[in-house]
Amino acid sequence: MTWDWQFFLKDIGDGETRYVDWMISAWGWTLAVSGCAWVVALLFGAVVGTLRTVPNRWLAGAANVWVELFRNIPLLVQIFLWYFVIPAIIPPLQQVPSFVMVVAALGFFTSARVAEQVRAGIQSLSRGQRNAGLALGLTLPQTYRFVLLPMAFRIVLPPLTSEAMNIIKNSSVAFAVSISELTMFAMQAQEETSRGIEVYLAVTGLYIVTTMVVNRLFAFLESRVRVPGYVGGGK
């Protein structure tokens, strides 16, 4: 076979955009979808994971339902549910852009996984830590805020790193509802140019670079918040 990377500089047919421009814009969409979804996932994951550990049956139960709901359905199916089913049931949602729907779907799906990690982090702390916070007169929310969560998040940073990388890779399902992100670009560009191998290699490279940057960012964060004298924290 012969390589042809030149087509990236060709016009896509509108007289001003080249394929490489399109790809960069698609990369931007990938970053936007995963970035926004990560904010949603982290926010809801932290709250739901925390609620799963509180001594209140109703709150813990509701949080449990959240996790079950968003973890038990395949991501692609959830995307379609948000895109087709939910707007049919709640008509005002038909006006909402598909970008928002995809961010919600991907964000909530990932929030269930983040919640489980946050719960595991909290539960890995001894009961005495909670007692020590309460005994000092901190309220339960204060005990979570100042005592339990700071340690829990440190402990679950490694799995959270994987989750942040996953959300970038999972954002590829957004093609299913016509978000013009990297995977969507790859499929369309290879149709138009018949240079599928080059297109997919380029897109693969961009995914790898992106996830690697995220990985390094988290590794940096991990080293910044390391607790001296704690396991893995050095002296």
Binding site: N131, L138, F146, V147, R154
Partner: peptide, 30 residues
Amino acid sequence: RARVGMVFQNFELFPHLTIMENLTLAQIRV
């Protein structure tokens, strides 16, 4: 509870805070 001091069997200092922060956390927040 803020007026009842308690010392636990397993220390239960807060590992992510310095010794001084351990002493000031509840003074400031409570």
